[in-house]
């Protein structure tokens, strides 16, 4: 196995293992911390694929921003009691479904012929991303800004203060 492949599987294991920690952790604070492993793993995979800029942004935005915000939110919420109104069917049936789907996925993924790009020497991607945003991808770029505006307004509406009277 080439080194890159081995590193990829290692990173994937870290990412997935932490994700399991998030999902199955009983303490929401530990779950939030386990999320860091997932974010770091994804950032490392970006770097491994030669997407240096994306890797750094992933670190900045997710680890530096979102994760810290999540931790703050968890710690500042003084009482979190979850009332389970829709009980899950149970872990065993879930595990069976996941097992069947995963087996199916791995089987078909191994059989398929995937299109492959030509790996070149590592190069800085930032300039290219900037060009693409104002060239080929100008519409998604602009639409994303409207999405962010709507999300901002939505966040204000959801978290508005209760007005008395």
């Amino acid at each position: 196995m080439p080194v890159t492949t081995a590193v990829f599987y290692l990173l994937a294991a870290v990412t997935l293992g932490s994700a399991c920690g998030v999902a199955f952790g009983t303490n929401i604070l530990y779950s939030a911390f386990a999320l860091m492993g997932t974010f770091l793993g994804v950032a490392a995979i970006f770097v491994l694929l030669g997407a240096d800029f994306l890797g750094v942004i992933q670190l900045f935005v997710y680890v530096g921003g979102i994760l810290v915000l999540t931790l703050f939110a968890v710690m500042l919420t003084h009482r979190i009691d979850v009332q389970v109104s829709n009980r899950a069917v149970g872990r065993l049936p879930g595990l069976v479904v996941v097992g069947v789907v995963a087996t199916w996925m791995i089987r078909v993924a191994r059989a398929a012929r995937w299109t492959e790009g030509q790996p070149g020497p590592p190069a800085a991607t930032t300039a290219g991303i900037g060009d693409a945003f104002l060239g080929t991808y100008v519409l998604p770029f602009e639409v994303a800004s409207v999405v962010l505006l709507a999300a901002l307004i939505g966040a204000i509406v959801v978290s508005r203060k209760e007005v008395k009277g």
């Binding site: 998604p140 639409v143 994303a144 999300a151 307004i153 939505g154 509406v157």
Partner: peptide, 23 residues
């Protein structure tokens, strides 16, 4: 695929907030 995903998420995001609009 990019625009499809982006516009679908856009629509969903606004719908979530509108659904929870009642105080």
């Amino acid at each position: 695929l990019l625009m499809a995903y982006l516009s679908l998420e856009f629509a969903s995001l606004t719908s979530y907030v509108l659904t929870g609009f009642l105080r």
